[in-house]
Nucleic acid binder design. Structure first.
Lengths: 342, 342
DNA sequence: TTGTAAGCGTTATCAG
DNA sequence: CTGATAACGCTTACAA
C-alpha cells in the first residue's frame, strides 16, 4: 500500500522492469491469462502490488472494446423527482451494459463547462438540458464543439419550442390536465389557484395549460408564483398565497415537491386537506404516498421515460437510430392519479 | 448528422485524410488552438462534422492529464437515504473537479462484476461496499485483482468487524441511542419495539444497540423483523407487528424509510402517533420533515459523511493520505433530533 | 512459457 | 501556418 506522493503512477513498463519480464508477461499476469507459469505470475503480481500499479483505463480503452458510459444531466438530486428518474435510467442502462455518470447541475456556476467536461467523458448524454447542442453551422464564432458528434436526448422537451434538433422525450400532461380539471369541477371547487414555480409575471407552460383546462369548466384559475420547484419554495409560496393572495379552495402545484410544501403549510395553518383545500401535485413521485393525506397527482411513468431515453441514446450511439427527427422523438403522457389530497 | 451503422467511428486520421491535412492540423482545429488559418480550420471542421468525428476520450486521456472520476456505490436509489448521500458526494467531488460515476447495486445479480467493471472506469471508489477489497496476500486463487491499487473508502464501516483494511467512515449512533432511550423513558414509554431490517432471528447491530440503551432505563425491547430497509417493508413489518406481535407503545425503526412505513400503517389502523405509539427513525432524512407527524429521528450529518469520504478518496488518490490505518478512518456521530413523532 | 513488434487515437515538440 | 516524429499505456498478433 503505497503512501508517499508518487509523482507519476507506475506503468506496465515499471512493473515489467521490476519483475524482470516483458510487458506482455505483465499483461498476462494482470489479466489472468494463460501461458504464464505460476511462478512468474506471482513475481509479477507482487511487483505490481509493491509499485501500486493499476492498468490505465485509457491505455486499455484504446485497445479493447470500450465500456460505454451514459452521461445523465439533472438539476438537483435533492428534488425527489430526479432520484426516481436516475434510478430508472441507471437500471435500464445497466441492462445494456452501460455505466452512468451523473452530473448534478444544481450548484454549478459554469454550466457550460459542466457540459463540456461531461461530453468528453461519455458516449451519449441524456437528461434535463438547458444548453442546446451546437448546431450544424459551426461557422460563426470560435464556439466550443462541445456536444457536436455526441448523441443527445433531451428529457421534457418543450414542443412549443418547435421540433427538437436532437433526440427528445416530450412529457405530455394535456389529457391529465383535462381530467384533473373535470375532477376538481366535479367535487365542487370554485376558486382554484395554480402555484407555479417560476419568476413572478412569467407563467410556466404548465400554468397556462392548467388555466386553460380549468376554464373549460368555467373556472378561473389564478396563477401564484413560488420561487422554484422545491418543497421549501412550495411551503413559502403557500404562506405567501394565504397571506396576500386571493381566496382559494384548491391548489394545483407545479410539481409534487411544491405540493408537499403546500401540504406542510396547510397543516401549519390548520387548513384541512382535502376538506378546506384540495391539493394536486404533478409527477407521481412515490414520496406522495408517504405523506398525509396522500397526494393526488398528475403522474408520469418514470420508468417509461427512462426506458425511452436509454433506448434512444444507445440506439443513436450504435448508429441504429438517426440523431434527430421524428424517429427519436418520443412522447410520454401524464395521467391523473386520485389519492387523498383532492 | 450521421445515420447509418458506421462500423467503426471516425478517427483523427480519417478527418485528416478527408481534409487533406495532417493529424496535427486536425487537433489544432478541434481544440481551438492557434497556429492555423481560418480557412484550413473551416475545412477541417466541416470534414470532421460530415464524418461524425469525435476525439476519443481514451486517446486523449492517454496524453493529457486525465479528468478524475469517483465511483460511488450505493444500494438503492429508491431508498431516500442514498439520493441524499449521492447529492452530497457529487457536490464535494465537483468542488475538487472530480466526476462521479454512480453504481446502483440494487438489482444487480453479479455484484462482483459490478465492482470489477466500476474499478476499471474510475480512480477511486467510495460507498456501501459489501465486497472486501482484495487483501495483500494475492497468493491463493487466480482471484481477480479488482480493487487492488484503487483507493477505497467504505461508508458505514462496522467497527465490530475490526479495523478496516482501507479508508472508512464509521457511523456512530451510540450517543444518540443513549439520548433516545432517555427520551422515550422520560415520556413514559413502557413497551418499546425495535422494528429491525434483517432476516428473522438475526438482529442487526443497530437492534442490539437499541436494546442495550433501553435496558439501561429498565425497558425491555422486543426486536421485530421487517424484510428490508424500505418503506414498503416497514409498512408490512408494522402490520405484522400489530397482528402477531407483543403490545407496544413505541417503535424504533431501523431507519427513516422503515419508520415512514410504520407511520403509514399506524395511520391506516387509526393508531395515533405519537399519542398511542411513539415512532423513531434513523438517518435524519429531509423526507422525515415532509410527513405528518414529522419524524423524530437519529440523524446523521450526510454532508459530513460525504465530505470525509471525498476528502479521503481524493487524498488517497493524490498520495497525500495512506490507503489504510487510523488516518483514513473517520467517525461521524448520530444525534437525536426530536420532532413530532416521539 | 516467454518475448518482440505493431498498433490503438491523441497531443507535444520541433522542424520546415 | 503546417507537418513529421515521438510518446502516452496497453493489448493482440506472431515468433522464439
Amino acid at each position: 500500500m503505497p503512501v508517499g506522493g508518487t509523482a507519476r503512477s507506475a506503468t506496465i513498463n515499471d512493473v515489467a522492469a521490476a519483475a524482470g519480464v516483458s510487458r506482455q508477461t505483465v499483461t498476462r499476469a494482470m489479466n489472468d491469462m494463460r501461458g504464464i507459469s505460476a511462478d512468474t505470475k506471482q513475481r509479477v503480481l507482487s511487483a505490481a502490488r509493491s509499485l501500486g500499479y493499476r492498468p490505465s483505463r485509457f491505455g486499455r480503452g484504446l485497445v479493447k472494446a470500450p465500456l460505454n458510459t451514459l452521461g445523465l444531466v439533472i438539476d438537483d438530486l435533492a428534488n425527489p423527482y430526479y432520484p426516481e428518474l436516475a434510478a430508472a435510467v441507471i437500471g435500464f442502462a445497466a441492462e445494456r451494459g452501460w455505466n452512468v455518470m451523473l452530473a448534478d447541475a444544481v450548484h454549478v456556476r459554469d454550466r457550460h463547462r459542466l457540459m463540456t467536461d461531461l461530453a468528453q467523458q461519455v458516449d451519449a448524454i441524456v437528461g434535463y438540458l438547458s444548453l442546446d447542442p451546437v448546431d450544424g453551422s459551426g461557422a460563426a464564432g470560435g464556439d466550443v464543439v462541445e456536444l457536436a458528434g455526441l448523441p443527445v436526448v433531451r428529457i421534457d422537451h418543450d414542443d412549443a419550442a418547435g421540433p427538437p434538433r436532437f433526440g427528445a422525450i416530450s412529457l405530455d400532461p394535456d389529457a391529465a390536465m383535462v381530467a384533473v380539471a373535470a375532477h376538481l369541477a366535479a367535487v365542487g371547487v370554485r376558486r382554484p389557484v395554480m402555484l407555479d414555480a417560476s419568476p413572478p409575471g412569467r407563467a410556466s407552460g404548465r400554468a397556462r395549460h392548467v388555466a386553460v383546462s380549468l376554464a373549460a369548466h368555467g373556472l378561473a384559475c389564478a396563477v401564484w408564483p413560488a420561487g422554484d420547484a422545491t418543497v421549501a419554495a412550495g411551503a413559502e409560496g403557500a404562506e405567501d398565497l394565504i397571506a396576500h393572495g386571493p381566496p382559494f379552495d384548491a391548489v394545483v402545484a407545479f410539481n409534487d415537491a411544491v405540493a408537499l410544501g403546500v401540504l406542510q403549510t396547510c397543516r401549519r395553518h390548520g387548513v384541512d386537506v382535502p376538506h378546506d383545500v384540495r391539493v394536486v401535485g404533478m409527477d407521481g413521485l412515490s414520496i406522495g404516498t408517504y405523506v398525509t393525506p396522500q397526494l393526488t397527482t398528475l403522474a408520469i411513468d418514470m420508468s417509461e421515460v427512462a426506458r425511452h431515453a436509454v433506448e434512444l441514446a444507445v440506439g443513436m450511439r450504435l448508429g441504429e437510430l438517426p440523431w434527430s427527427g421524428p424517429t427519436v422523438h418520443r412522447r410520454v403522457a401524464h395521467r391523473l392519479v386520485v389519492r387523498e389530497s383532492a
